[in-house]
Simulated scan of single mutants.
Amino acid sequence: MVAGETSGDMLAGLLLEGLRARWPDLQTQGIGGPAMLAQGFQSWWPQEKLAVRGYIEVLPRLWEILSIRRQLRKRLIEQPPALFVGVDAPDFNLGLEAGLRAQGIKTVHFVCPSVWAWRPEKIEKLKVAADHVLCIFPFEPELLAQHGIAASYVGHPLASVIPVEPDRAAARLKLGLNNEDTVVALLPGSRSSEIAYIGQRFFDAAAQLLRRRPGMRFVVPAVPAQRERLQAMAQASGLGDSIQVLAGQSHLAMAACDVTLIASGTATLEAALFKRPMVIAYNMHPMSWRMMKRKQLQPWVGLPNILSGEFVVPELLQDAATPTALAQSVLDWLDSPERIEVLQQRFQALHLTLKRDTAQLATDAIEKILES
């Protein structure tokens, strides 16, 4: 298995739990993070080596990443596994899967690339790479079938992990927050490049919010590799005791908050499953932004908006993601309880659509591949 970043590690960890329940003696190795390691996974390289997003941002690391893929491919061909599972990370995994499949190794790709949102050219690469695709959104298998790609809808693992009705009071108690506090969760991303481009804007927006609403509290979940950096940014922001930088605990932060200011990515879907209003923001290298914009097929980039088919939450991207605009968008939510109520109803319906027995459905599909 290969999972290239924090969100992939989380999904892979949940999948591994189901695989181990069916095959207790299963041996798994490749590249993964803490959630996978907790399931007995052996990671041959640190997952952080692959955690890069964007076209220009990847260039300083490209040679190392390609070297890892070459070494991994050679190792797997010399010692063929019963199955290779690529978890998301299509830029890394699809090429690797194609090479392994050409050598007779069975391959599964977990999480359909967002060919319906941008980069439609990946569908041809997926066709060559994967014997089967495990899809987390219900409309994807039919789309893939039109291109001759075998796929199964397995639901989104997080929809079964996150309760349909999150316990805000319990989450606040664990974080030392009062029920009457106004709490904003800041999630500037897990990759170093994301924090470099958007992190300071988030903290500056938080400082503006605190000036306008004294007493506001902020929580910042941080992956281990970025925690020290985020702590330094928090200390320099002038937020003082009003901010906590947490060791992970993103779900606790989302459950506890009133609103989240969040970088575009898988975390936005998690926030939706927690029924939390959000302001989605993103900023990247200008050249990467121009290249991505050309490949975009829909007017939305945030998963809650894509799945809803409309702007149910605001998106402030690139130059629009100024600290002032971010702060004002957060205040707009806090001042509109009726909007929040409507949004929560939309998110609850979405949650029920995505909630399936993912472990059972995924392992059923994998067993058929192994027996074919």
Rank of each mutant, 00 (worst) to 15 (best):
A256E: 00
Q235N: 14
D204I: 04
Q231K: 14
A207I: 03
F202T: 07
A205I: 08
M216T: 13
L252T: 15
R229P: 05
L239H: 02
I243W: 01
H251I: 05
L261F: 00
F218H: 07
R201H: 13
R227S: 06
F203Y: 11
L252D: 11
L246R: 02
G240W: 08
I198C: 02
G238E: 08
P224F: 04
M233P: 01
G240F: 08
V245T: 09
Q226F: 07
H251A: 08
A256K: 00
I243E: 01
A207M: 05
A222Y: 00
G215H: 08
V259M: 03
V259R: 01
A222L: 01
P224Q: 08
A247G: 10
A222R: 00
A253L: 05
S250P: 04
G240T: 10
Q244V: 10
V259P: 00
A232D: 15
A234R: 01
L252C: 15
A232W: 13
Q235C: 12
M254R: 00
A267E: 05
I195M: 11
G215A: 08
F218W: 09
A207Y: 07
G248V: 05
G265H: 03
R211V: 14
F202I: 10
Q208A: 09
Q244Y: 12
Y197Q: 13
A207D: 03
C257W: 03
V220W: 01
Q235M: 13
L252M: 12
Q200T: 13
D204M: 07
S264C: 11
P224K: 10
R201E: 11
R229N: 15
S264A: 14
V245K: 03
L246F: 07
V219G: 05
G215P: 05
S242R: 12
F203Q: 06
A222D: 01
G265L: 02
T266E: 10
G238D: 09
I198N: 00
A205R: 06
Q235D: 14
T260G: 04
L246I: 03
